[in-house]
Design a protein around this nucleic acid. Sequence first.
DNA 1: TTACGGTAGATGCAAACGCATGAACTTCGA
DNA 2: TCGAAGTTCATGCGTTTGCATCTACCGTAA
Lengths: 159, 159
Amino acid sequence: MTRSRSRLANDSWESLLTAHAALMKRFAAEPIWGEVSMREYDVLYTLAKHEGPIRLFELGRGVLLSQPALSRLVERLAERGLVERTPDPEDGRGLRLGLTAAGREAQRRVGGRHAVDVARAVADVLTDEEMRQLESIGRKLAGAQAPAQTRTTSKEAVL
Amino acid sequence: MTRSRSRLANDSWESLLTAHAALMKRFAAEPIWGEVSMREYDVLYTLAKHEGPIRLFELGRGVLLSQPALSRLVERLAERGLVERTPDPEDGRGLRLGLTAAGREAQRRVGGRHAVDVARAVADVLTDEEMRQLESIGRKLAGAQAPAQTRTTSKEAVL
DNA sequence: TTACGGTAGATGCAAACGCATGAACTTCGA
DNA sequence: TCGAAGTTCATGCGTTTGCATCTACCGTAA
């Protein structure tokens, strides 16, 4: 008998989780996190990717942290001179976050070494085809996750 | 020009990370984590899956936590009567961890509801084919992650 | 047997986190 | 135009985490 779609979905999610945990552990064990921690790097990378001032709550979308935790993490990075926080002229409540020169440099330095480790871990195991599939699947999964729509009317087979 | 394998590997890993964060946020927002937190559920689920006594450090493989954090998390679960810790008769250093009846019941209760959310999030977005691909890719990635072998001799294109 | 290196968990402590809430500002309807 | 509701970020506080270290035990070899 074939697995139900629900079962298949849960199995594939568990597989993603397991892979995530295994790779994160491997990367965490690499000796490149002296300057910035993995979580800090996550923030620096997101800021580097956007290349323009970004709001705190936008940053929060990509980072798996609560809003207060992110607020204080950014505060620490600012105190260390890696991130710049300026009030948003167009919205008195908000901040505009950006990397300082030192922050950008740190991101590049750590990112370069991290990318080597990622390449080793992933490219040694997957074919080009699989990597492309993973990229596509991840994009689809991340794309449609407004945090809890109740728009579904279809009855679904549960496990 | 085609992306280098290293670039492809990094892009696909970023995609996995983004999907992971988006889905975790969505699941965390679901109103099912009153009884046990997500991390606690992770431990209960792992114990339920194994179905036999398991060692703490084995548990640690699957869970993204430091050894001391896991040790204390298990301690708390034991105090709440969800997990049973008994000394391992075959190894005086070790523990044998298992679910209590209450723990198993809690895992089933929360797990059932969580599975519904997972199915909604994943199966609504991916085809059966994609879910199977994701499962296979995740398995491959998780499989080969002994935390930092230096067995590679090939020169690799770095970014 | 006994010493020695290695492994499994536990513990002290400072750092970081999440939840609840607060302060400042924006937005929108009356 | 004015007040209520919503949004953005910060802060207080108790809980949890990670790092370093410690204790207890195992395995091996002299």
